[in-house]
Amino acid sequence: MSRRELADAVGVHYQTIGYLERREYSPSLVLALKIAETLDVPVDAVFALAPFDSMADQIYKEKR
């Protein structure tokens, strides 16, 4: 799914999705829930208070 498609689905400007990806903007709860619903994942899979581990770290930890 492209930024623009996600932005259109949740009703924000595509630039706002970029700000969320770069952690330069914290969304409202409503927007966070809409994004999670659109991506069909729980909200804590997309947003968390602490930064997520990188993909490499997650795979490495699983293997250990």
Binding site: G11, V12, H13, Q15, T16, Y19, P27, S28, L31
Partner: peptide, 16 residues
């Protein structure tokens, strides 16, 4: 600035 200062809130998203 994409007119964020001019446009009313109805056509802006929450960040704007």
């Amino acid at each position: 600035t994409r007119g964020v200062e001019e446009l009313p809130e109805e056509v802006l998203d929450e960040r704007q």
